[in-house]
Design a binder for these strands. Structure first.
Length: 370
RNA sequence: GCUGGAAUCGUCUAGUGGCAAUGACAAGAGACUGUAAAUCUCUCGCCUUCGGGCUUCGUAGGUUCGAGUCCUACUUCCAGCA
């Protein structure tokens, strides 16, 4: 069983520590999205320096390249990437939702590789095997996301996710029994879309399984997220960690997530937006490519202590983006990733100090001022 | 000086008589939430009650129902010859 200590509780919110074989994660924590075993534009050294505690790779992308077995040969995701710290893998289930030409059956999902068109099938069992080979500390169950917001589609996806969860747990236990020298853990994934009764059903189902924690999937908007998380996290057992899958581009989501009992987050938004020139500040996001920053010799964010803000100006970043220099994306990614990581760190501190409510209100009213 | 050739939106460019006129870049703005994203979208002569109106292809004239496209002169640039 994955060790998870809760230091402090406040309503549904909690402060804790997840003890993984590769080190501890002080929660709540933002996990960097390292889809293809790299956080785009950043080195692992830079990730450590900006305060990241864990990264999350994607099984779908990693089996296409370089292959799960190769990562196993390299000693696992943490060693292969030189991250050395705690790691998660997403199951690849999300790709069912995001890729076109996907055939979903009870057995699994048939894809065509977007790289060379090779036919390829992922099942709960294959996802588990691949995740064990990739060797992240924490694996996500292979789940199914509905293609639409319609209740009947959500229901079908949820039931399929549950059926697949049983197979994931069985396969996980099976591999665990034969790989006794390895310690790897499984999270079940809660589905149910925007329907709280379905979410409750899904949470109950997941809670009843022999898993180490939970992912909350299929969340795409903050609207109604508080109620949904309240429902789900009131049902999920308190002593196991919960990961809010894919949310965190909007700081609001991190506050809501933490307040309603989520322990970890991952999101591609911060680094993707960084690459596209959209940078976080306490007063909201700015597009550094805008002409108004041409002669702005202040840092992106004066209250920020990241390497970008400590050393470079908006005018310089503007110049790097306008001239399409690769350094633009690096510095911007350092800043944005640091912004979300440190924001969640501050949420953690505020929960410990009992100043969460104040921090949240101050932060959000300023960030979403306009 | 002579003989050819060329002048189109910030730049390069399409365009050889028929509705401001192609494409790229640049520029301006927007989007992005378990990453087929170093991506994508929109604007880019002026005005607009969004139907349209007005002014544009070096300058000035001309031919024509109609000219960026044809003719003449001029200006500038390029190449060759002196």
């Amino acid at each position: 069983m994955l060790k998870f200590d809760i230091e402090k509780k406040s309503g549904l919110a909690r402060v804790g520590i997840i003890h993984t074989p590769h080190g501890d994660i002080k929660t709540p924590a933002f996990v960097g999205a390292a889809t293809r075993a790299t956080v785009k534009a950043l080195t692992m050294e830079q990730m450590r320096e900006l305060g990241s505690q864990a990264i999350l790779g994607n099984t779908y992308h990693l089996i296409l390249a370089p292959g799960a077995d190769l990562i196993k040969k390299a000693g696992g995701l943490a060693e292969f990437s030189s991250w050395h710290g705690p790691t998660f893998t997403d199951s690849g289930g999300f790709q069912i939702f995001s890729l076109p030409d996907v055939k979903i059956t009870e057995n699994g999902a048939k894809f065509k590789s977007h790289i060379n068109g090779d036919k390829f099938e992922m099942t709960p069992e294959s996802s588990m095997r691949d995740q064990w080979a990739i060797g992240a500390d924490i694996h996500m169950a292979f789940d199914h996301l509905a293609k639409s917001e319609k209740r009947e589609d959500m229901e079908i996806a949820m039931h399929r996710t549950h059926a697949w969860l049983d197979r994931c747990v069985a396969e996980h236990q099976h591999i665990k029994a034969s790989e006794r020298h390895l310690e790897q853990y499984l999270y079940a994934v809660v589905q149910g879309g925007t329907f709280n009764d379905l979410r409750a059903k899904s949470a109950e189902y997941c809670a009843s399984k022999d898993v180490d924690g939970f992912g909350i999937g299929g969340v795409f908007t903050a609207d109604g997220m508080d109620e949904m998380l309240k429902t789900v996290n009131s049902i999920l057992p308190e002593n196991k960690p919960r990961h809010l899958l894919g949310m965190g581009q909007e700081p609001r989501d991190l506050f809501i997530g933490a307040e309603y009992g989520c322990d970890t987050f991952d999101c591609v938004g911060p680094t993707r937006m960084a690459r596209n020139g959209s940078l976080y500040t306490l007063d909201g996001r700015i597009n550094i490519k805008n002409a108004k920053f041409k002669e702005d010799f202040t840092p992106i964010m004066s209250e920020c202590d990241c390497d970008c803000c400590k050393n470079y100006t908006r005018a310089y970043l503007h110049h790097l983006f306008k001239t399409d220099e690769i350094t633009a994306k690096i510095l911007a990614s350092i800043h944005n990733e640091h912004f979300v990581v440190s924001t969640v760190d501050k949420i953690r501190k505020s929960l410990l100090n009992d100043t969460f409510e104040e921090y949240k209100n101050t932060f959000l009213s300023r960030y979403y001022h306009n």
